[in-house]
């Protein structure tokens, strides 16, 4: 009996230990951003050969200097503005295009709707790394280099396929009876969509907004290819590429930027992740 209790105890301990190891591995870089962002320079830039100086904690009181420099001494706020502009435009385009397409595939397109839906989703697998070279030529033909318009044009290529797929799944989960009842009551299909379906689809559209926006925030390759002017950069390009003086990174401000940008996105994103996963695994998990 006691032997069994010991075994149970050991199992619990192993479980907690494993959970702790995974969590530490996942969180460590964010902790490191936090430390770096608020450490004074004399606490920050101590070579790792100095074994007496423990880098894992604040040895001097934390400071806001790096954050102040980030906001008032670097183009960070310009990048925030650019990102917001591109994000809003891309989200708007994505909603306007993907929501009707999702509904059409779910309800109106019949048997071939399924195939087309999968076809559109497969384009999500065509990566930016394959397309940035032809796009470089297209963008220069259109005269869009160093313009945010280039990003607004190109980013929907990955938000539309994914969000169409997401909305298709969402509309499928709306009971057909509701729509049919409304049509029996004399509403046209279009009126049904406006009066019955769209109000029910608000959570789905909210998911689309979140994902389109975070996908925009995540994107790096296209931005690097099309934009070289510092004032035209977005956050995910400007922070890693342009927060340097000569060859020297401002690590304090850089990590502050990473922290301030990543954590809110990560929090919002993880609250929506289950839908994202449900979209990706639609074929592999049954009911």
């Amino acid at each position: 009996m006691t032997g069994r209790a010991v075994l149970r105890g050991a199992k619990r301990a192993a479980l907690y230990a494993a959970a702790a190891v995974f969590t530490v591995f996942a969180v460590f870089p964010f902790y490191w951003m936090l430390l770096t962002a608020f450490k004074q320079n004399r606490d920050l830039y101590v070579g790792a050969t100095n074994l007496q100086h423990v880098p894992w904690i604040f040895n001097d009181p934390p400071t806001l200097d790096h954050v102040r420099l980030l906001f008032f001494g670097t183009p960070y706020l310009v990048w925030v503005k650019n990102t917001a502009l591109v994000g809003l435009a891309v989200v708007a385009i994505t909603l306007v295009v993907a929501v009707p397409a999702g509904y059409s595939l779910a309800r109106l397109a019949g048997r071939w709707g399924e195939r087309l839906g999968i076809g559109i989703f497969l384009t999500y697998l065509v990566p930016p790394t394959l397309l940035f070279i032809p796009f470089a030529r297209v963008i220069s033909l259109l005269g869009l280099q160093n313009k945010l318009g280039a990003l607004v044009l190109v980013y929907p290529t990955f938000t539309i396929p994914f969000c169409t797929w997401l909305m298709m799944g969402f509309f499928r989960s709306v009971p057909r009876d509701l729509e049919e009842q409304a049509m029996i009551d004399g509403y046209s299909r279009l009126a049904v969509i406006g009066k019955v379906v769209l109000p029910l689809a608000v959570p789905g559209m909210l998911t689309v907004v979140i994902f389109a926006f975070t996908l925009v925030l995540q994107e790096f390759v296209y931005a690097l290819t099309f934009i070289s002017q510092v004032e035209r950069m977005t956050l995910s390009l400007g922070v890693p590429v342009a927060l340097v003086r000569g060859d020297v990174f401002y690590w304090g401000s850089l990590m502050a930027a990473c922290l301030i940008t990543s954590v809110p996105i990560a929090v919002v994103y993880s609250s929506f992740i289950d839908r994202f996963i449900a979209g990706l695994t639609a074929g592999a998990i049954k009911g």
Binding site: S236, P240, F249
Partner: peptide
């Protein structure tokens, strides 16, 4: 939710943390 942080954070910014 903590485990999800690495996936959700923008990859370019997370990579810079690792560079550091």
């Amino acid at each position: 939710s903590l485990l999800l942080l690495p996936w959700a954070a923008p990859v370019a910014l997370a990579s810079m943390a690792w560079v550091w």
